[in-house]
């Protein structure tokens, strides 16, 4: 399967400089925060990533932030075992949980974030393994995320609520939730296939036998012009390989145009709302 860890995870040292909280007069606080967050989206962009998945059925799952958070938070080795997640998929679930922890730790260590906590960076190195050690095991690190299932205090619930209002965290959560949904479906399909096939089936045989609910192809178009194509191993054995590749190529071309439309809309809107005059450069507020 393709590694879909969020790209943002790699950019610990590359936090944007220009999005310090300044206030533009004449705008309400709501509007100011909103424009700021739109600006942050634009600054965070490093590449366009197009993923093509084959699924057994399209579900109209709605993204509900709290639900997604509540479902990813408890992930651990024991939990996955309890939930009867197929062994071959467990590492991928763990990765989702680690990415979520990383996103939160980045917020805690970002002086510009409202979640900034000075003590995070002062604390012992072992506590910050998620920031420094990419291979850290989930059980070796201590989670800082507010507990949505068994909160110890009302503050913890408020903290979780506040976190789910943070645009950056939400964007990442959305992607994690999308990946988790695919993993959940794949898990079901794998378990079903396992029951169908006689005897003890090797995981790689099983993965070949189940052709749905996975990302087959991924194309990353970086802003510097570099293009990276990744294909899952399984695509080479897929009965409709050519078709799938063709659809992916079409999806990449279409994706670029679709995304450009969305971006142009946002950029225009931010510019037109902040602009001081047609000929002058953008005001500094």
């Amino acid at each position: 399967m393709i590694d879909t860890r969020t790209r943002k995870g790699k950019e610990i040292t590359n936090l944007p400089e220009s999005n310090s909280k300044h206030f533009t007069p004449g705008l309400g606080r709501n509007l100011n925060d909103f424009l700021q967050s739109l600006g942050e989206v634009l600054i965070d962009i490093t590449a366009l990533e197009v993923n093509t998945m084959v699924v057994e059925r399209i579900t109209g799952d709605k993204f509900i932030a709290w639900e997604a958070y509540r479902d990813i938070y408890p992930i651990s080795r024991q939990y996955l075992e309890q939930q009867e997640i197929h062994e071959s998929l467990r590492d991928r679930y763990i990765d989702l949980r680690k990415t979520m922890e990383l996103e939160y730790t980045l917020l805690l260590s970002d002086p510009k974030s409202e979640f900034y906590d000075q003590s995070i960076l002062d604390s012992a190195k072992e506590d910050n393994q998620i920031l420094t050690n990419p291979t850290v095991e989930l059980h070796e690190m201590q989670t800082r995320l507010p507990d949505p299932i068994r909160p110890t205090s009302p503050e913890e619930i408020f903290k979780a609520q506040a976190l789910l209002h943070d645009y950056r965290f939400l964007r990442s959560l959305r992607k994690l939730s999308e990946l988790k949904a695919a993993l959940d479906s794949r898990n079901k399909a794998l378990l079903r296939k396992q029951d169908e096939l006689p005897g003890n089936v090797k995981p790689d045989v099983l993965h070949k036998a189940v052709t749905t609910d996975m990302i087959y192809a991924q194309t990353v178009l970086q802003l510097d012009g570099e293009v990276i194509n990744r294909y899952s191993q399984e695509i080479f054995d897929h009965p409709h390989r050519e078709m799938l590749l063709q659809i992916h190529r079409d999806g990449v071309i279409a994706g670029q145009k679709q995304w450009r439309g969305l971006l142009e809309f946002i950029i225009d809107l931010v510019q037109a709302t902040l602009q001081r005059g047609s000929s002058k450069p953008k005001g500094q507020g």
Partner: peptide, 14 residues
Amino acid sequence: VISADGDIFHQIKS
């Protein structure tokens, strides 16, 4: 699913 920060997921029924 298309998000402004550049993640696109296309899903197709098998």
